[in-house]
Amino acid sequence: MAENFDQTIFFSLWTFSVNSTLFFTWLVMGLLVLFAWISTRRLSSDFVVSKFQTVVELLVMIVRGQIYEVSQDNPKKYMSLVGTMFLFIFTCNILTFIPWFDPPTGSLSTTAAFAFCIFVGVPVYSIRNAGFKKYIRKFVKPVPFMLPLNIVSDFSSVFSLAVRLYGNIFSGVMIGMVLMTMVPFIIPVSMQLLGLLTGAIQAYIFSLLAVVYLSAVGPEEQYVPAPDPLY
């Protein structure tokens, strides 16, 4: 049976029924907020830093470096949106090894919401980067004849962003469930291990493509990173 995470009702608050997607989204959000709170509680610029701070600094540095290499632009602009999405998707996909955890990314509603954020973000970032005129000119870029194709490609790229993440995670869950009914020992574990790898790569790909779409219309002047280890 195809599992639909949006229809598994966990409990209801007043007249509002909380389905499993919503519940686990809140759970992951809570985990991330807790982690952020613990890690930033005692920040220091000393030589001796706490373990949590080291982890977070490493994470921030890696994400910023990747964003800079893809967009050739100031990573600070994209960090707050794309970095948050990466953390959330990555945590969701990694936590699938917990048996009763339904990953929120395996539901089309979550991924569609993320992709919608990117869809709204593309014009916002483009206009902020290069101005309204440049953004409009993007649609008639090679020849004006391409206008409908460019508009369709804007929609389809966002659509594929949502469906790709959903399809990958959902298919991983489905394969695990189908194998569980046929060969309940050992073999489902190997497929779920593969699912962890796919989940990590998909989180990376989602944020990478988000940066690519958001920074498609870049600013005029070349961004030169400051000689700071954190860019």
Partner: peptide
């Protein structure tokens, strides 16, 4: 990775 994700999207569809 990026191009593989692009190619893979047809399979996901």
């Amino acid at each position: 990775f990026v191009s593989m994700a692009m190619v893979e999207s047809t399979a996901i569809y």
